[in-house]
């Protein structure tokens, strides 16, 4: 049975033990082209709001 990546990460040392670790799904979504295209649009809109509030 293959060990999950988060098991390896948590086991590295004491510092890692108490952190929040992304699982396989969250990690995969970070570079999923369709999901990231949607996030691209949303992040740009959010940034535009902050930029317009700051000028």
């Amino acid at each position: 049975m293959s060990v999950k990546q988060e098991e390896v990460n948590f086991a590295r040392n004491e510092q890692s033990e108490t952190t929040m670790m992304p699982g396989k799904f969250a990690t995969a979504m970070r570079t999923n082209l369709i999901w990231q295209f949607i996030r691209f649009v949303i992040i740009n809109l959010k940034m535009l709001v902050v930029v317009s509030k700051s000028h």
Partner: peptide, 10 residues
């Protein structure tokens, strides 16, 4: 902390 731990950075 999550990112550092995930990427194996002490």
């Amino acid at each position: 902390e999550s990112l550092y731990a995930e990427r194996g950075v002490d």
